[in-house]
Simulated assay, not measured.
Amino acid sequence: MSLSLAILGSVKSWHIAELLKASSSENICGSVIDWGTIGSLTDSSRDRFWPDFLHNADAILVRTMPAGTLEQVISRMDILARLANRGIAVVNNPRSLESAIDKYVTATRLVDAGIPVPRSAIVQSSADLQMCTDEFGGIAVVKPIFGSNGQGLARYEGNAKQIPLFFSENGVAVAQQYIANDGWDVRILVVGSEAFAMRRVAADGEWRTNISRGGRAELFTPPTEWIELA
């Protein structure tokens, strides 16, 4: 009997298609579940989760979580934590996901671990954003606290027109020091004792390297010290 794998993400994503293909090749029954369809009912006798495939899965693989209200983000994490408590393998585990989803928490935990990161701040006003931008040397990257795929990212250099709409609507953002680069960055994924890396190259005229923003992925062999850092 094959194992069942629930993949939380968008069925339209290219990486989800690759995961399904890889699962099939390993005789694993994979199914994609949209975040907006999950739910949970709890009483004194048992927990029930839906859709049914989520409830009965042997393991749950979490891919990108879409933007949502604070209540949506928290409730999704609560459901994952409850599933993990029932003994279902959730990858990555909910505690790690909480650190990764919140960009400010990510930055502070990396700092606490002694890993160098760009200077990061939580700002709630345009005045605070300008203050931090000045301290960062005149350029800041403004990001939503929760977000992915480069959505909402803006490079701010003191022009009010550069302030992203989400900041005006939400009243809070993460501001980080802009690090000059050659138009590419590297992602290293550590699985057990193995490291896998790729280089993301920004599209022409674009400073964001996200694949969803037109960037391209290339195989990359990072220096040993980068792997040790990861």
Results as ranks from 00 to 15, higher is better:
161 K>T: 13
228 E>C: 03
147 G>S: 13
192 G>V: 05
204 D>A: 13
209 T>K: 01
214 G>K: 06
152 G>V: 05
171 G>M: 05
99 S>M: 12
191 V>N: 05
111 V>A: 14
186 V>T: 07
113 A>H: 07
185 D>K: 04
149 N>M: 09
143 K>L: 07
164 P>Y: 02
199 R>Y: 01
174 V>G: 04
185 D>M: 02
98 E>Q: 14
191 V>E: 07
190 V>T: 14
183 G>V: 08
147 G>V: 04
225 E>H: 15
168 S>M: 10
124 Q>K: 10
226 W>D: 05
119 R>C: 12
203 A>T: 03
158 G>D: 03
200 R>W: 00
223 P>C: 02
140 A>V: 05
99 S>C: 11
201 V>S: 03
110 L>D: 06
161 K>Y: 08
137 G>V: 10
149 N>C: 06
124 Q>C: 13
180 A>M: 11
182 D>E: 15
144 P>S: 04
225 E>Y: 13
182 D>L: 11
132 C>G: 00
154 A>K: 08
205 G>H: 09
107 A>G: 12
158 G>S: 03
156 Y>E: 07
131 M>C: 10
227 I>K: 13
102 D>R: 09
218 E>L: 12
212 S>P: 00
189 L>E: 10
108 T>E: 13
177 Q>E: 15
186 V>W: 05
209 T>M: 01
124 Q>G: 13
99 S>E: 12
198 M>V: 11
134 D>V: 12
183 G>M: 08
